[in-house]
């Protein structure tokens, strides 16, 4: 590849110009959604007087939605058919994580309740 980069702007075809607008809009939407989903849990923790369990639930829900937002708008993971292979990769990783992480919590908290009550937070 050479440095043919003297022209200021590549001539975009109509299709490409449309794509550019659409993609930029995607990033902006992603940013806005992520901002909102960040502000909600921070606001709840700082100002809201609700019981901890609900609070944990809302933080977790916001986090999960925000992760999906990031995957969709920043990493461009969609349900499109030709990207299934990679979606499967991510879902498989989630499965492994659930097994290993969930298993760790299950095993060790079970152990704590029986043998090491001092370690229960």
């Amino acid at each position: 590849m050479s440095r043919r980069a003297l022209s200021k702007k590549r001539e975009l075809s109509d299709e490409e110009a449309k794509e550019l607008v659409a993609e930029r809009r995607g990033y902006v939407w992603g940013l806005l959604a992520a901002l909102v989903l960040t502000l909600i849990p921070f606001g709840l923790v700082a100002y809201a007087e609700i019981e901890p369990l609900t609070l944990y639930g809302s933080i977790a829900a916001c986090a999960i939605v925000q992760i999906v937002v990031h995957f969709r708008f920043f990493l461009h993971i969609t349900l499109a058919r030709n990207k299934r292979e990679d979606l499967q990769l991510i879902l498989f990783t989630l499965l492994i994580l659930t097994i290993m992480g969930g298993g760790t919590l299950w095993i060790l908290f079970n152990l704590y309740y029986r043998m090491m009550p001092g370690m229960i937070p």
Partner: peptide, 13 residues
């Protein structure tokens, strides 16, 4: 993300 778009649609660096 904006950098990625510049990479994709702009010829100049």
């Amino acid at each position: 993300g904006m950098a990625s778009l510049a990479l994709k649609y702009r010829e100049d660096t």
